[in-house]
Amino acid sequence: MTVQETILSVRNLNKVYETPAAWGRAGTRTHVVHDVSFDIQRGEILGLMGESGSGKTTIGRLILQLLHATSGQVALEGCDLCGMTTQALRPLRARMQMIFQDPLFAFNPRHTVHQILGTPLRLHPELVERHGPVDEQIRHVLSQVGLPADVVHRYPKAFSGGQRQRIGIARALIMRPSLIVADEATSALDVCVQAQILNLLLDLRDELDLTILFIAHDLTAMGLVCDRVAVMLRGRIVEIAPTSELFSRPRHPYTASLLQAIPRIGTKAMPGVAPCMPGKGTQVQDGDGGCPFRMSCRWAVAQCAHNGTALRLLEKDHWSACVREDLDLPGL
């Protein structure tokens, strides 16, 4: 990267689900994404890591405008997407693509690979004008993801999990997007196949200068492919830093507890030393202004009840929301 060019800029993104009061039952407000801000530069892979329910998938969908944000901004290459009409968004959708966890459910089972890859081009004829005929582009993109050209007449169910994920990636690539959101793209795959797909994503990034938002809960995979990682907890980003920094010197106790939970070869688990983690019984009320991790945190102090939601810059590119800047937490 010579000159940094911001592809995606997310500012103060919020998403609240409200159920109205009805039949004597009080309405509820669930704040699933809380004031989230980050940037992704061209050619960068940013990891978004968090447990289920932390809001990472919601953020992916908010960026792609598959959900409407309650407030905040999502700017793709400088144009703000929130508040655009469906009509105005349509030409922009080609510039951001998604790779799904299980591509079998993301494909029409009655469509051949040719139809799967050709449909997006049919909807965006300007890409055919610019980059050549459909068949040629399909052949090109299949070779990029390492599939033979003769698969075009086969149906999704005829492929193995890894091949299907390659088709999923090909469908995203054929639009020549500025941004790819990969939501748990390798979680459903076997270890060897996962390794192949992770390598493919890295190769494609180097070759095409792709920008990827990599959403996952698998920390080891994330540590391998991402340039920077953001850790989410209950709808907030609690720490964001370059990968090696974050893994070697975490500054938020929640990140440290996640790192301790990584299963690794050669360390046998000892009963009773499971890491501390936010359990259901220790749910912190939304919007009380305190750190969402404080109930499970062994370093919590009184200050944590009112502080610890805003990210602060600790050193170059390393942001953490924890008020205890003095902590020396174990990394990997």
Binding site: T220, F247, I265
Partner: peptide, 10 residues
Amino acid sequence: DALPTVDMIR
């Protein structure tokens, strides 16, 4: 070998 390990990240 196919397993991403902590050492590789380090």
